[in-house]
């Protein structure tokens, strides 16, 4: 079996879980190891960081972890930026939306560097005004 990247959704409350539910509805089976942390308002960032570190480590099968956060500069994203300092091999892509998540899950064979680019282009490319 080839190695694959693990995916950690690190979001504001109720966001990550809802996106996973929607992705499962669309795709049926999810082809990558996936976990979610929804950061509650008022929670302690250091506690979140410890939790995220643990989850990222168990997601990492050797190919690293793609962390997807919903809002650049917000606490979930700021926590994610501290993970490499704790030895987590990861890329973090922010601006998480459903097109981004679906696109990531459609390329489970990609390596971490490439998958981060795939995520970013999926998120950007999924936005249209009126009819495409």
């Amino acid at each position: 079996m080839t190695m694959s990247v693990g995916v950690l959704l690190l979001t504001h409350e109720a966001m990550g879980g809802a996106l996973i539910t929607a992705a499962r509805h669309v795709l049926g089976k999810l082809p990558l190891p996936l976990d979610v942390i929804e950061v509650e308002p008022g929670s302690d960032p250091d506690t979140t960081l410890r939790d995220a570190t643990q989850r990222a480590r168990s997601l990492d099968g050797g190919d690293g972890v793609l962390v997807l956060t919903d809002l650049y500069g917000a606490t979930p994203c700021n926590v994610a930026q501290r993970l490499p300092g704790l030895g987590v091999h990861m890329h973090c892509v922010s601006g998480l939306n459903l097109p981004m998540l679906l696109r990531v899950l459609n390329y489970p064979e990609q390596k971490l560097d490439q998958l981060a680019q795939t995520a970013a282009s999926g998120g950007r490319g999924g936005i249209f005004v009126d009819h495409a």
């Binding site: 097109p99 679906l102 459609n106 249209f128 495409a132």
Partner: peptide
């Protein structure tokens, strides 16, 4: 083979 591609056709 691209999910976002196919969906983009609407």
């Amino acid at each position: 083979k691209s999910i976002m591609g196919v969906m983009m056709l609407a």
